[in-house]
């Protein structure tokens, strides 16, 4: 039951450090080389994402099964929101990392990826129009972590432990929503403008879910066609969704 200000500063502190791909980029890209760079980066980011989730106040108090379930559901949405945040001040570019920046045309070499790049660029422009603030961004990311639809809408807890974990998760979601409302209230807007902003920001979450679903299909197709070798943590996270 942390004060909102403290809650928000804890999730700000949980932010992962900047990550570099650290590969010799050979341009022009081939389908295989671009997919390899993208998956290598994703694999590194996933390790940091797990440390990030553990620092969200209350996350480690959920049952281990729920922690696993939530991360397996949302990982690509979280990666995509992070990508959009890094790209928000660079119109027309996707800043995967400081040493791995792509424009939409470069997506041409990977079958089916330009469509996803375009969606990411469009959603990034929307965040640019809205002038997304860092405090809002960290709240949205935590909301994505806790917003598994399977979890909230389809599973009914069977045991006392499951029920307790679900209740904790809902309380945690309350805290994150309160924190987002609080962050918006600091912007000097009228009450009506604050309500509209909350609506616009949260509606973007459905676009992020949609892009994540498209991205997941794309990655599993690339894996099936042996364009890229998916291994380790990324494989585990992908398999959970296919």
């Amino acid at each position: 039951h942390l004060h909102l200000e403290e809650f928000i500063s804890r999730i700000m502190e949980a932010e992962p450090p900047e990550i570099y791909l650290m590969e010799d980029m050979k341009k022009p890209f081939t389908e295989a080389s671009m997919m390899m760079s993208l998956t290598n980066l994703a694999d590194k980011e996933l390790v940091l994402m797990i440390s990030w989730a553990k620092k969200i106040p209350g996350f480690l108090e959920l049952s281990l099964a729920d922690q696993i379930h939530l991360l397996k559901c949302c990982w690509l949405e979280i990666l995509m929101l992070g990508l959009m945040w890094r790209s928000v001040d660079h119109p027309g570019k996707l800043i995967f990392s400081p040493d791995f920046k792509l424009n939409r045309e470069e997506g041409q070499c990977v079958e089916g990826i330009m469509e996803i790049f375009d969606m990411l660029l469009a959603a990034t422009s929307r965040f640019r129009e809205l002038k997304l603030r860092r405090e809002e961004y960290v709240c949205l990311k935590a909301m994505i972590l806790l917003n598994s639809s399977e979890y909230l809408c389809t599973s009914s807890p069977q045991t006392a432990e499951e029920l307790e974990s679900r209740n904790k998760m809902l309380r945690l979601l309350d805290s994150v929503i309160d924190a987002l409302v609080w962050a918006i209230s600091k912007l000097g807007l009228t009450t009506q403008q604050q309500t509209l902003r909350l609506g616009h920001l949260t509606m973007l979450l459905s676009h992020i879910r949609h892009m994540s679903n498209k991205g997941m299909d794309h990655l599993s197709t690339m894996k099936r066609k042996n364009v890229v070798l998916v291994y380790d943590l990324l494989l585990e996270m992908l398999d959970a969704n296919t």
Binding site: I50, K55, I68, L71, L233
Partner: peptide
Amino acid sequence: HTKLLQLLTTKPE
């Protein structure tokens, strides 16, 4: 043990 489980259950340094 999966890698995700392993990363979740290791104590932060």
